[in-house]
Design a protein around this nucleic acid. Structure first.
Length: 479
RNA sequence: GGUCCCGUAGCCGAGUGGUUAGGCAACGGAUUGCAAAUCCGUUUACCCCAGUUCGAUUCUGGGCGGGACCUCCA
Protein backbone atom coordinates (compact mmCIF):
# COMPACT_ATOMS: atom_id res chain seq x y z
CA UNK A 1 0.00 0.00 0.00
CA UNK A 2 1.32 3.41 -0.91
CA UNK A 3 1.52 6.42 1.35
CA UNK A 4 -1.10 8.97 0.42
CA UNK A 5 -0.62 12.56 1.45
CA UNK A 6 -2.80 15.61 1.06
CA UNK A 7 -1.15 17.81 -1.51
CA UNK A 8 -2.02 21.50 -1.16
CA UNK A 9 -1.07 21.95 -4.80
CA UNK A 10 -3.53 19.42 -6.24
CA UNK A 11 -5.97 19.68 -3.34
CA UNK A 12 -6.36 15.94 -3.02
CA UNK A 13 -4.60 12.94 -1.58
CA UNK A 14 -1.64 12.08 -3.78
CA UNK A 15 0.47 8.98 -3.64
CA UNK A 16 4.01 9.53 -2.54
CA UNK A 17 6.02 8.63 -5.61
CA UNK A 18 9.61 9.69 -5.01
CA UNK A 19 11.58 11.01 -7.96
CA UNK A 20 14.25 8.50 -7.09
CA UNK A 21 12.81 5.13 -6.07
CA UNK A 22 13.37 4.31 -2.42
CA UNK A 23 14.56 7.78 -1.52
CA UNK A 24 12.52 10.72 -0.33
CA UNK A 25 13.67 14.32 -0.14
CA UNK A 26 11.95 16.68 2.29
CA UNK A 27 12.35 20.36 2.91
CA UNK A 28 10.74 22.11 5.85
CA UNK A 29 10.42 25.82 6.34
CA UNK A 30 12.08 26.23 9.70
CA UNK A 31 12.18 28.86 12.36
CA UNK A 32 12.95 32.53 12.01
CA UNK A 33 15.31 32.95 14.93
CA UNK A 34 14.21 36.27 16.38
CA UNK A 35 12.31 35.01 19.43
CA UNK A 36 11.72 31.91 21.54
CA UNK A 37 10.05 29.03 19.75
CA UNK A 38 6.43 28.61 20.82
CA UNK A 39 4.19 25.60 20.90
CA UNK A 40 2.47 26.60 17.69
CA UNK A 41 5.78 26.49 15.86
CA UNK A 42 6.34 23.04 17.19
CA UNK A 43 2.97 21.77 16.13
CA UNK A 44 4.28 22.25 12.58
CA UNK A 45 7.75 20.94 13.25
CA UNK A 46 6.45 17.89 15.08
CA UNK A 47 4.17 17.18 12.13
CA UNK A 48 7.26 17.28 9.91
CA UNK A 49 9.05 15.00 12.32
CA UNK A 50 6.26 12.43 12.36
CA UNK A 51 6.11 12.59 8.57
CA UNK A 52 9.82 11.89 8.31
CA UNK A 53 9.65 9.10 10.87
CA UNK A 54 6.75 7.38 9.18
CA UNK A 55 8.26 7.63 5.71
CA UNK A 56 11.43 6.09 7.11
CA UNK A 57 9.32 3.44 8.85
CA UNK A 58 7.94 2.57 5.44
CA UNK A 59 11.41 1.78 4.21
CA UNK A 60 12.43 4.95 2.44
CA UNK A 61 15.77 6.59 2.83
CA UNK A 62 14.90 10.14 3.76
CA UNK A 63 17.00 13.24 3.40
CA UNK A 64 15.55 16.04 5.44
CA UNK A 65 16.49 19.70 5.32
CA UNK A 66 15.17 22.41 7.59
CA UNK A 67 16.35 25.96 7.17
CA UNK A 68 17.08 28.51 9.86
CA UNK A 69 16.02 31.96 8.79
CA UNK A 70 18.46 34.39 10.34
CA UNK A 71 18.14 37.24 7.90
CA UNK A 72 15.73 38.82 5.50
CA UNK A 73 12.40 37.88 7.00
CA UNK A 74 10.71 41.23 6.76
CA UNK A 75 7.99 42.40 9.05
CA UNK A 76 6.27 43.45 5.89
CA UNK A 77 7.44 42.33 2.50
CA UNK A 78 5.56 44.87 0.51
CA UNK A 79 5.97 48.09 2.35
CA UNK A 80 9.07 50.12 1.91
CA UNK A 81 9.40 50.50 5.66
CA UNK A 82 9.29 46.74 6.10
CA UNK A 83 11.94 45.80 8.57
CA UNK A 84 14.00 42.67 8.91
CA UNK A 85 12.80 40.81 11.98
CA UNK A 86 16.31 40.18 13.15
CA UNK A 87 17.06 43.86 12.86
CA UNK A 88 13.88 44.77 14.72
CA UNK A 89 14.72 42.39 17.56
CA UNK A 90 18.17 43.89 17.68
CA UNK A 91 16.84 47.42 18.05
CA UNK A 92 14.56 46.31 20.82
CA UNK A 93 17.22 44.55 22.86
CA UNK A 94 20.33 46.51 22.02
CA UNK A 95 22.16 43.36 21.00
CA UNK A 96 23.41 42.57 17.56
CA UNK A 97 21.31 40.65 15.09
CA UNK A 98 24.01 38.00 15.00
CA UNK A 99 23.83 37.48 18.76
CA UNK A 100 20.09 37.22 18.65
CA UNK A 101 20.19 34.69 15.84
CA UNK A 102 22.69 32.58 17.73
CA UNK A 103 20.70 32.63 20.96
CA UNK A 104 17.40 31.62 19.42
CA UNK A 105 18.92 29.08 17.10
CA UNK A 106 20.46 27.37 20.12
CA UNK A 107 17.18 27.57 21.95
CA UNK A 108 15.41 26.06 18.99
CA UNK A 109 17.78 23.10 18.91
CA UNK A 110 17.28 22.62 22.62
CA UNK A 111 13.52 22.50 22.12
CA UNK A 112 13.93 19.97 19.33
CA UNK A 113 15.86 17.79 21.72
CA UNK A 114 13.33 18.20 24.51
CA UNK A 115 10.49 17.29 22.19
CA UNK A 116 12.24 14.20 20.89
CA UNK A 117 12.61 15.46 17.35
CA UNK A 118 14.79 13.36 15.08
CA UNK A 119 17.31 15.89 13.89
CA UNK A 120 17.04 16.84 10.22
CA UNK A 121 20.11 15.89 8.20
CA UNK A 122 20.82 19.51 7.39
CA UNK A 123 19.78 22.70 9.12
CA UNK A 124 21.43 25.44 7.08
CA UNK A 125 21.37 29.12 7.95
CA UNK A 126 20.27 31.63 5.36
CA UNK A 127 23.32 33.78 6.09
CA UNK A 128 25.58 30.94 4.96
CA UNK A 129 23.94 30.82 1.54
CA UNK A 130 24.19 34.37 0.28
CA UNK A 131 26.38 33.31 -2.62
CA UNK A 132 23.99 30.59 -3.74
CA UNK A 133 21.09 33.02 -3.55
CA UNK A 134 23.13 35.38 -5.69
CA UNK A 135 23.50 32.79 -8.39
CA UNK A 136 19.74 32.38 -8.62
CA UNK A 137 19.06 36.12 -8.50
CA UNK A 138 21.65 36.64 -11.22
CA UNK A 139 20.00 34.03 -13.38
CA UNK A 140 16.53 35.48 -12.81
CA UNK A 141 17.82 38.90 -13.82
CA UNK A 142 19.47 37.40 -16.91
CA UNK A 143 16.26 35.61 -17.82
CA UNK A 144 14.34 38.85 -17.46
CA UNK A 145 11.91 37.58 -14.82
CA UNK A 146 13.47 39.79 -12.19
CA UNK A 147 14.28 43.47 -12.39
CA UNK A 148 16.32 45.96 -10.50
CA UNK A 149 14.96 49.34 -9.48
CA UNK A 150 16.95 52.53 -9.16
CA UNK A 151 17.95 52.06 -5.54
CA UNK A 152 19.33 48.63 -6.34
CA UNK A 153 16.52 46.47 -4.94
CA UNK A 154 15.75 43.43 -7.02
CA UNK A 155 12.21 42.18 -7.43
CA UNK A 156 10.75 39.11 -8.98
CA UNK A 157 8.26 40.04 -11.67
CA UNK A 158 5.04 38.12 -11.12
CA UNK A 159 3.73 38.96 -14.58
CA UNK A 160 6.50 36.81 -16.08
CA UNK A 161 5.37 33.75 -14.18
CA UNK A 162 1.81 32.88 -15.19
CA UNK A 163 1.57 30.02 -12.71
CA UNK A 164 1.82 32.42 -9.77
CA UNK A 165 -1.10 31.59 -7.49
CA UNK A 166 -1.36 27.92 -8.37
CA UNK A 167 -0.60 26.76 -4.86
CA UNK A 168 -2.65 29.13 -2.77
CA UNK A 169 -5.37 29.78 -5.29
CA UNK A 170 -4.89 33.47 -4.73
CA UNK A 171 -5.79 35.51 -7.73
CA UNK A 172 -5.06 38.95 -6.50
CA UNK A 173 -6.71 41.82 -8.21
CA UNK A 174 -4.87 44.94 -7.46
CA UNK A 175 -7.78 46.72 -5.86
CA UNK A 176 -9.04 43.98 -3.67
CA UNK A 177 -11.51 45.21 -1.07
CA UNK A 178 -10.45 44.80 2.48
CA UNK A 179 -7.00 43.46 1.81
CA UNK A 180 -4.26 45.66 3.06
CA UNK A 181 -2.05 45.85 0.04
CA UNK A 182 0.31 48.72 0.36
CA UNK A 183 1.81 49.93 -2.84
CA UNK A 184 5.49 50.22 -3.25
CA UNK A 185 5.91 52.77 -5.99
CA UNK A 186 9.10 51.21 -7.26
CA UNK A 187 7.51 47.86 -8.02
CA UNK A 188 5.85 47.15 -11.32
CA UNK A 189 3.14 45.12 -9.62
CA UNK A 190 2.24 45.10 -5.94
CA UNK A 191 2.63 41.32 -5.90
CA UNK A 192 6.25 41.46 -7.06
CA UNK A 193 8.44 40.34 -4.21
CA UNK A 194 11.92 41.24 -3.08
CA UNK A 195 14.89 39.07 -3.97
CA UNK A 196 17.43 41.56 -2.74
CA UNK A 197 17.14 44.68 -0.62
CA UNK A 198 19.80 47.31 -0.88
CA UNK A 199 20.57 48.75 2.52
CA UNK A 200 23.86 50.15 3.66
CA UNK A 201 22.65 50.55 7.24
CA UNK A 202 21.53 46.98 7.73
CA UNK A 203 23.61 45.13 10.34
CA UNK A 204 23.71 42.02 8.24
CA UNK A 205 24.92 43.17 4.88
CA UNK A 206 26.81 41.70 2.01
CA UNK A 207 27.99 42.78 -1.36
CA UNK A 208 25.24 41.92 -3.76
CA UNK A 209 26.57 38.66 -5.17
CA UNK A 210 25.17 39.51 -8.57
CA UNK A 211 26.62 42.99 -8.74
CA UNK A 212 29.40 44.30 -6.60
CA UNK A 213 29.14 47.57 -4.74
CA UNK A 214 25.52 47.16 -3.77
CA UNK A 215 25.53 46.44 -0.08
CA UNK A 216 22.39 44.84 1.21
CA UNK A 217 20.65 41.67 2.25
CA UNK A 218 18.53 38.98 0.59
CA UNK A 219 14.76 38.81 0.54
CA UNK A 220 13.11 36.16 2.62
CA UNK A 221 11.83 33.72 0.03
CA UNK A 222 15.00 33.22 -1.96
CA UNK A 223 16.83 31.42 0.83
CA UNK A 224 14.59 28.37 0.63
CA UNK A 225 15.09 28.02 -3.10
CA UNK A 226 18.85 28.29 -2.69
CA UNK A 227 19.18 25.89 0.21
CA UNK A 228 16.76 23.25 -1.00
CA UNK A 229 18.43 23.05 -4.39
CA UNK A 230 21.86 22.98 -2.79
CA UNK A 231 21.09 19.97 -0.64
CA UNK A 232 18.28 18.23 -2.49
CA UNK A 233 18.55 19.22 -6.12
CA UNK A 234 16.19 21.21 -8.29
CA UNK A 235 13.26 18.94 -7.61
CA UNK A 236 12.15 17.64 -4.26
CA UNK A 237 9.49 15.22 -3.15
CA UNK A 238 7.89 16.95 -0.17
CA UNK A 239 7.94 20.49 1.12
CA UNK A 240 6.15 21.40 4.35
CA UNK A 241 5.35 24.43 6.40
CA UNK A 242 2.64 26.02 8.48
CA UNK A 243 -0.54 27.02 6.71
CA UNK A 244 0.51 30.65 6.83
CA UNK A 245 3.54 29.82 4.69
CA UNK A 246 1.40 28.83 1.76
CA UNK A 247 0.93 32.42 0.74
CA UNK A 248 3.00 34.29 -0.02
CA UNK A 249 6.15 32.41 0.97
CA UNK A 250 5.65 29.12 -0.84
CA UNK A 251 4.02 30.75 -3.79
CA UNK A 252 7.14 32.89 -4.17
CA UNK A 253 9.43 29.92 -3.76
CA UNK A 254 7.67 28.14 -6.59
CA UNK A 255 7.87 31.19 -8.82
CA UNK A 256 11.58 31.83 -8.36
CA UNK A 257 12.63 28.17 -8.35
CA UNK A 258 10.63 27.18 -11.36
CA UNK A 259 11.53 30.30 -13.29
CA UNK A 260 15.13 29.43 -12.53
CA UNK A 261 15.13 25.70 -13.36
CA UNK A 262 12.07 25.25 -15.58
CA UNK A 263 11.29 22.13 -13.60
CA UNK A 264 8.55 21.36 -11.13
CA UNK A 265 10.04 22.42 -7.81
CA UNK A 266 8.03 20.25 -5.43
CA UNK A 267 5.85 17.18 -5.94
CA UNK A 268 3.86 17.36 -2.72
CA UNK A 269 3.24 20.48 -0.70
CA UNK A 270 1.98 19.89 2.83
CA UNK A 271 0.72 22.44 5.30
CA UNK A 272 -0.02 22.06 8.98
CA UNK A 273 -3.00 23.88 10.43
CA UNK A 274 -2.38 26.35 13.15
CA UNK A 275 -2.71 25.47 16.77
CA UNK A 276 -5.42 27.16 18.79
CA UNK A 277 -5.07 27.76 22.50
CA UNK A 278 -8.31 27.72 24.49
CA UNK A 279 -10.07 27.85 21.13
CA UNK A 280 -8.45 31.12 20.23
CA UNK A 281 -5.56 32.06 18.06
CA UNK A 282 -2.48 32.14 20.20
CA UNK A 283 -1.39 35.69 20.80
CA UNK A 284 0.49 37.60 23.38
CA UNK A 285 -2.32 40.08 23.91
CA UNK A 286 -4.79 37.33 24.81
CA UNK A 287 -2.37 35.90 27.34
CA UNK A 288 -2.61 32.46 25.78
CA UNK A 289 0.84 32.50 24.27
CA UNK A 290 3.13 29.68 25.34
CA UNK A 291 6.72 29.08 24.45
CA UNK A 292 7.98 25.53 24.75
CA UNK A 293 9.87 26.57 27.84
CA UNK A 294 6.74 28.09 29.41
CA UNK A 295 5.06 24.70 29.25
CA UNK A 296 8.04 22.82 30.63
CA UNK A 297 8.32 25.29 33.50
CA UNK A 298 4.81 24.33 34.52
CA UNK A 299 6.12 20.87 35.23
CA UNK A 300 5.14 19.05 32.07
CA UNK A 301 7.64 16.94 30.20
CA UNK A 302 8.66 17.31 26.59
CA UNK A 303 7.04 13.98 25.93
CA UNK A 304 3.71 15.16 27.33
CA UNK A 305 3.86 18.30 25.25
CA UNK A 306 4.77 16.27 22.21
CA UNK A 307 1.81 13.97 22.76
CA UNK A 308 -0.56 16.91 23.14
CA UNK A 309 0.69 18.53 19.93
CA UNK A 310 0.89 15.40 17.82
CA UNK A 311 -2.33 13.60 18.70
CA UNK A 312 -4.61 15.58 16.40
CA UNK A 313 -4.59 15.34 12.65
CA UNK A 314 -2.16 17.88 11.21
CA UNK A 315 -4.71 19.33 8.80
CA UNK A 316 -7.22 19.98 11.53
CA UNK A 317 -7.09 22.86 13.91
CA UNK A 318 -5.96 21.50 17.24
CA UNK A 319 -7.04 23.07 20.47
CA UNK A 320 -4.29 23.22 23.03
CA UNK A 321 -5.14 23.50 26.72
CA UNK A 322 -3.29 22.86 29.95
CA UNK A 323 -5.94 20.27 30.69
CA UNK A 324 -4.90 18.58 27.48
CA UNK A 325 -1.43 18.15 28.93
CA UNK A 326 -2.88 16.42 31.97
CA UNK A 327 -4.81 14.14 29.65
CA UNK A 328 -1.62 13.46 27.75
CA UNK A 329 0.12 12.50 30.97
CA UNK A 330 -2.62 10.02 31.86
CA UNK A 331 -2.76 8.59 28.35
CA UNK A 332 0.99 8.06 28.22
CA UNK A 333 0.89 6.37 31.62
CA UNK A 334 -1.76 3.99 30.36
CA UNK A 335 0.44 2.75 27.54
CA UNK A 336 3.60 2.65 29.63
CA UNK A 337 1.78 0.69 32.33
CA UNK A 338 0.81 -1.85 29.73
CA UNK A 339 4.33 -2.11 28.35
CA UNK A 340 5.71 -2.43 31.85
CA UNK A 341 3.59 -5.49 32.47
CA UNK A 342 4.55 -7.04 29.15
CA UNK A 343 8.22 -6.54 29.98
CA UNK A 344 7.74 -8.17 33.35
CA UNK A 345 6.08 -11.20 31.86
CA UNK A 346 8.68 -11.48 29.14
CA UNK A 347 11.43 -11.48 31.76
CA UNK A 348 9.58 -13.91 33.99
CA UNK A 349 9.03 -11.41 36.80
CA UNK A 350 5.36 -12.05 36.45
CA UNK A 351 3.75 -15.30 35.48
CA UNK A 352 2.96 -15.77 31.83
CA UNK A 353 -0.30 -17.21 30.60
CA UNK A 354 -1.40 -19.13 27.57
CA UNK A 355 -2.89 -16.32 25.50
CA UNK A 356 -1.31 -15.90 22.11
CA UNK A 357 -1.26 -12.26 21.03
CA UNK A 358 0.25 -12.97 17.63
CA UNK A 359 -2.89 -12.35 15.62
CA UNK A 360 -3.93 -9.32 17.65
CA UNK A 361 -0.48 -7.80 17.31
CA UNK A 362 -0.36 -8.37 13.58
CA UNK A 363 -3.78 -6.82 13.24
CA UNK A 364 -2.89 -3.75 15.29
CA UNK A 365 0.33 -3.38 13.35
CA UNK A 366 -1.46 -3.55 10.02
CA UNK A 367 -4.14 -1.10 11.13
CA UNK A 368 -1.54 1.30 12.43
CA UNK A 369 0.22 1.22 9.09
CA UNK A 370 -2.97 1.67 7.12
CA UNK A 371 -4.16 4.67 9.11
CA UNK A 372 -0.80 6.35 8.93
CA UNK A 373 -0.54 5.68 5.22
CA UNK A 374 -3.76 7.59 4.75
CA UNK A 375 -2.41 11.09 5.19
CA UNK A 376 -0.87 10.47 8.60
CA UNK A 377 -4.04 9.94 10.56
CA UNK A 378 -2.32 10.06 13.92
CA UNK A 379 -5.58 10.27 15.88
CA UNK A 380 -6.85 7.05 14.44
CA UNK A 381 -3.45 5.42 14.76
CA UNK A 382 -3.42 6.30 18.45
CA UNK A 383 -6.85 4.75 18.74
CA UNK A 384 -5.36 1.53 17.39
CA UNK A 385 -2.54 1.69 19.92
CA UNK A 386 -4.85 2.22 22.88
CA UNK A 387 -7.20 -0.49 21.80
CA UNK A 388 -4.30 -2.85 21.50
CA UNK A 389 -3.08 -1.88 24.96
CA UNK A 390 -6.49 -2.76 26.39
CA UNK A 391 -6.34 -6.07 24.58
CA UNK A 392 -2.95 -6.80 26.12
CA UNK A 393 -4.16 -5.82 29.58
CA UNK A 394 -7.13 -8.11 29.28
CA UNK A 395 -5.03 -11.09 28.21
CA UNK A 396 -2.77 -13.41 30.16
CA UNK A 397 -0.16 -13.63 27.40
CA UNK A 398 2.74 -15.97 26.79
CA UNK A 399 6.24 -14.60 27.13
CA UNK A 400 6.89 -14.73 23.41
CA UNK A 401 3.60 -12.95 22.76
CA UNK A 402 4.78 -10.20 25.04
CA UNK A 403 7.93 -9.94 23.01
CA UNK A 404 5.88 -9.47 19.83
CA UNK A 405 3.55 -6.95 21.42
CA UNK A 406 6.51 -4.98 22.73
CA UNK A 407 8.00 -4.92 19.27
CA UNK A 408 4.82 -3.29 18.03
CA UNK A 409 4.94 -0.67 20.77
CA UNK A 410 8.57 -0.04 19.90
CA UNK A 411 7.58 0.56 16.33
CA UNK A 412 4.85 2.97 17.40
CA UNK A 413 7.46 4.78 19.45
CA UNK A 414 9.80 4.90 16.49
CA UNK A 415 7.11 6.64 14.43
CA UNK A 416 5.29 8.85 16.94
CA UNK A 417 7.81 9.09 19.78
CA UNK A 418 5.15 10.24 22.21
CA UNK A 419 5.11 7.50 24.84
CA UNK A 420 8.75 7.08 25.77
CA UNK A 421 11.24 4.28 25.89
CA UNK A 422 10.30 0.76 26.80
CA UNK A 423 10.00 0.70 30.59
CA UNK A 424 12.54 -1.28 32.56
CA UNK A 425 11.47 -4.19 34.68
CA UNK A 426 11.09 -2.41 37.98
CA UNK A 427 13.36 -4.69 39.97
CA UNK A 428 16.18 -3.46 37.80
CA UNK A 429 15.81 0.12 38.88
CA UNK A 430 14.74 0.51 42.48
CA UNK A 431 17.44 1.64 44.96
CA UNK A 432 18.23 -0.79 47.76
CA UNK A 433 17.04 1.55 50.51
CA UNK A 434 13.62 1.73 48.89
CA UNK A 435 13.53 -2.04 48.62
CA UNK A 436 14.24 -2.14 52.34
CA UNK A 437 11.38 0.27 53.00
CA UNK A 438 9.12 -1.92 50.92
CA UNK A 439 10.03 -4.85 53.15
CA UNK A 440 9.22 -2.73 56.22
CA UNK A 441 5.80 -2.09 54.84
CA UNK A 442 5.24 -5.76 54.17
CA UNK A 443 6.13 -6.48 57.77
CA UNK A 444 3.78 -3.77 59.01
CA UNK A 445 1.02 -5.12 56.82
CA UNK A 446 1.54 -8.57 58.26
CA UNK A 447 0.95 -7.08 61.70
CA UNK A 448 -2.05 -5.19 60.30
CA UNK A 449 -0.39 -1.97 61.36
CA UNK A 450 -2.01 0.07 58.60
CA UNK A 451 -0.83 3.41 59.94
CA UNK A 452 2.81 2.34 59.74
CA UNK A 453 2.28 0.69 56.36
CA UNK A 454 0.73 3.83 54.88
CA UNK A 455 3.47 5.99 56.35
CA UNK A 456 6.08 3.93 54.54
CA UNK A 457 4.07 4.16 51.35
CA UNK A 458 4.05 7.95 51.64
CA UNK A 459 7.77 7.95 52.25
CA UNK A 460 8.38 5.90 49.13
CA UNK A 461 6.06 8.16 47.16
CA UNK A 462 8.11 11.17 48.20
CA UNK A 463 11.14 9.45 46.73
CA UNK A 464 9.35 9.29 43.39
CA UNK A 465 8.25 5.67 43.46
CA UNK A 466 4.99 3.96 44.06
CA UNK A 467 4.01 0.63 45.52
CA UNK A 468 2.06 -1.77 43.39
CA UNK A 469 0.29 -4.51 45.29
CA UNK A 470 -0.48 -7.66 43.38
CA UNK A 471 -1.69 -11.10 44.37
CA UNK A 472 1.95 -12.18 44.00
CA UNK A 473 3.20 -9.53 46.40
CA UNK A 474 4.22 -5.89 46.29
CA UNK A 475 6.78 -4.18 44.09
CA UNK A 476 8.07 -0.71 43.36
CA UNK A 477 7.50 1.34 40.24
CA UNK A 478 9.07 4.58 39.21
CA UNK A 479 6.43 7.27 38.92
C1' G B 1 -14.93 42.29 0.17
C1' G B 2 -12.34 37.62 -1.83
C1' U B 3 -10.66 32.45 -0.92
C1' C B 4 -10.99 28.30 2.33
C1' C B 5 -11.84 25.10 6.64
C1' C B 6 -14.69 23.44 10.68
C1' G B 7 -19.24 22.64 14.03
C1' U B 8 -19.37 14.87 16.87
C1' A B 9 -21.38 13.08 23.64
C1' G B 10 -18.60 16.81 30.38
C1' C B 11 -13.66 17.95 27.73
C1' C B 12 -10.22 16.54 23.69
C1' G B 13 -10.65 14.08 19.16
C1' A B 14 -11.19 10.11 14.65
C1' G B 15 -14.63 8.12 11.33
C1' U B 16 -18.81 6.29 8.40
C1' G B 17 -24.87 6.59 3.70
C1' G B 18 -27.54 1.44 7.68
C1' U B 19 -22.84 -2.28 12.40
C1' U B 20 -18.47 0.07 19.59
C1' A B 21 -13.26 4.92 17.23
C1' G B 22 -9.94 6.26 20.92
C1' G B 23 -8.06 9.30 25.16
C1' C B 24 -9.30 12.11 29.57
C1' A B 25 -13.08 12.94 33.26
C1' A B 26 -17.48 11.06 36.12
C1' C B 27 -20.38 7.04 38.21
C1' G B 28 -21.26 1.71 39.60
C1' G B 29 -18.96 -3.16 40.15
C1' A B 30 -14.60 -6.79 40.54
C1' U B 31 -9.76 -6.69 43.01
C1' U B 32 -7.33 -4.24 47.59
C1' G B 33 -6.67 -3.54 54.80
C1' C B 34 -7.33 1.36 52.30
C1' A B 35 -5.31 3.07 47.89
C1' A B 36 -2.81 2.87 43.03
C1' A B 37 -2.76 0.05 38.54
C1' U B 38 -5.88 -3.34 35.81
C1' C B 39 -10.58 -5.50 34.23
C1' C B 40 -16.15 -5.29 33.59
C1' G B 41 -20.36 -2.04 33.10
C1' U B 42 -22.91 2.87 32.70
C1' U B 43 -24.05 8.09 31.44
C1' U B 44 -24.91 12.82 27.97
C1' A B 45 -23.21 12.47 20.18
C1' C B 46 -23.15 13.75 15.62
C1' C B 47 -25.38 22.89 15.33
C1' C B 48 -30.41 24.20 12.94
C1' C B 49 -33.83 23.81 8.62
C1' A B 50 -35.04 21.81 4.03
C1' G B 51 -33.82 18.26 -0.01
C1' U B 52 -31.89 13.45 -2.23
C1' U B 53 -32.51 8.29 -0.27
C1' C B 54 -35.77 2.48 1.84
C1' G B 55 -32.43 4.87 5.35
C1' A B 56 -28.07 10.75 6.66
C1' U B 57 -24.23 12.40 11.76
C1' U B 58 -22.12 11.06 6.84
C1' C B 59 -24.39 13.64 0.22
C1' U B 60 -26.84 18.59 -1.70
C1' G B 61 -28.79 23.57 -0.65
C1' G B 62 -29.85 27.36 2.94
C1' G B 63 -29.22 29.33 7.90
C1' C B 64 -26.59 30.09 12.47
C1' G B 65 -21.87 29.72 15.03
C1' G B 66 -16.38 29.29 15.27
C1' G B 67 -11.68 29.63 12.82
C1' A B 68 -7.82 30.43 8.93
C1' C B 69 -5.50 33.04 4.81
C1' C B 70 -5.60 37.64 1.80
C1' U B 71 -0.47 41.91 6.61
C1' C B 72 4.22 39.42 10.40
C1' C B 73 3.25 34.57 12.16
C1' A B 74 4.39 27.41 12.15
Amino acid sequence: MPIRLYNSLTRRLDELRPLEPGKVTMYHCGPTVYSSPHIGNFRSFLFADVLRRFVEDQGYQVTQVMNVTDVGHLTNDDIESGEDKMEAASKKTGRTAWEIAKQYEDEFHECQRLLHVRMPHHMPRATDFIAQMGVIIDDLLAKGVAYQVDNGDVYFEIAKFPDYGKLSGKVIDELEDGARVAVNEKKKDPRDFALWKTDHKHQMQWDAPFRSGLRGFPGWHIECSAMSSHYLGHQIDIHTGGEDNMFPHHECEIAQSEAHTHKQFVSIWMHARHLLVDNKKMSKSLGNFFTVQDVLKKGYTGLELRFALVRGHYRQQLNFTLKGLDEARAAIARVQQCRQRLVRIRLGHESAGAADLTAATAQADAKFTATMQEDLNVSEALGVVFEFASECNRAQPTASSCQQALRFFARVEDVLACFGQEPMAVEDGAPAELQALLQQRQDAKKKKDWVAADAVRDQIARAGWKIVDTPQGARLEKV
